[in-house]
């Protein structure tokens, strides 16, 4: 269908590019060779039914799973062999689903840890203030244990932490999970704002209705394979997909 995201890697406008990536646990393969290109300065959203391998995919991109095959490129650098602990310094920001902050550490400590162990990616004071300004809800006592924040605040704190390390790509694992509808809308708005400030975003989302309006590109993952890649606005008018994915999630 659409060819605008499967571009030639040599003249790529992709921030993050995944080629033939295979992931799994032991001999059980869950992601069965996917090609994805997340365009620079855009929000790319991966949707798909439960068990399609979305979570496995994003964990693999963050480096928490060793790939069984294929390769992962960020801004032209090969990350495939790097474990999670080294990918952050290469510019991969990752916000896991739900367990996305250090619950027993204070809010201030969480923010401090965002960059303390990431050589060369510290934000300047100005950048830091700008990032924190995106998340007004985080104006809480720094000593407060992060586990006592509300779900929405935790999501904001997690995103702020990831951004402080100045990532080239921000990976978001279901940012809307467990949030009230009002917070979902707010979170998606924040995702858009972050992207508009120049951070490329690759996000996994179950809540297609909320995610599509802020997305530029959409990748549909089914049974560990890419079924479709498309511009988001094209998907919005495609009736079949609209029914298939928007209908069931709305």
């Amino acid at each position: 269908m659409s060819s605008d995201v499967t571009s030639n890697p040599l003249v790529s406008d992709a921030a993050l590019e995944v080629r033939g990536l295979r992931l799994g646990y032991g001999a059980t393969e869950i992601v069965k060779g996917v090609d994805i290109a997340a365009r620079r300065g855009a929000v790319t959203t991966i949707i798909g039914p439960n068990g399609s391998g979305k979570s496995t995919l994003i964990r693999g991109l963050a480096g928490l799973l060793r790939p069984l095959g294929g390769s992962i490129w960020l801004e032209g650098r090969d990350l495939t062999a790097l474990p999670a602990v080294r990918r952050v310094a290469e510019g991969v920001g990752y916000v896991p689903q739900e367990a996305n902050i250090f619950r027993n550490l204070g809010v201030a400590e969480n923010l401090r840890l965002a960059t303390e162990f990431v050589p060369g990616r510290q934000s300047s004071a100005r950048e830091r203030d700008e990032i924190l300004a995106l998340f007004p809800d985080l104006a809480v006592r720094g000593a407060l244990a992060a586990g006592r924040l509300s779900g929405g605040q935790r999501q904001m704190l997690a995103m702020a932490c990831a951004l402080l390390a100045r990532p080239s790509i921000l990976l978001l694992d279901e940012p809307s999970a467990g949030l009230s509808p009002r917070l979902v809308a707010e979170t998606m708005q924040t995702v858009r704002e972050v992207c508009d400030r120049g951070v490329s975003i690759l996000m996994i989302e179950q809540n297609v209705a909320a995610a599509l309006p802020v997305s530029d590109q959409v990748v549909v993952l089914v049974a560990g394979r890419v079924r479709l890649q498309s511009a988001a606005d094209r998907l919005l008018v495609d009736h079949n997909l609209h029914r298939l994915y928007l209908g069931e999630a709305a």
Partner: peptide, 24 residues
């Protein structure tokens, strides 16, 4: 200390600690 924060971070959430660049 830096070490103390790293230890508490790993104890709290090993995967997230790895993502934050903390060498387990």
């Amino acid at each position: 200390t830096r070490l103390g924060r790293a230890m508490r971070a790993v104890a709290d959430n090993p995967d997230l600690a790895a993502v934050r660049g903390i060498d387990r």
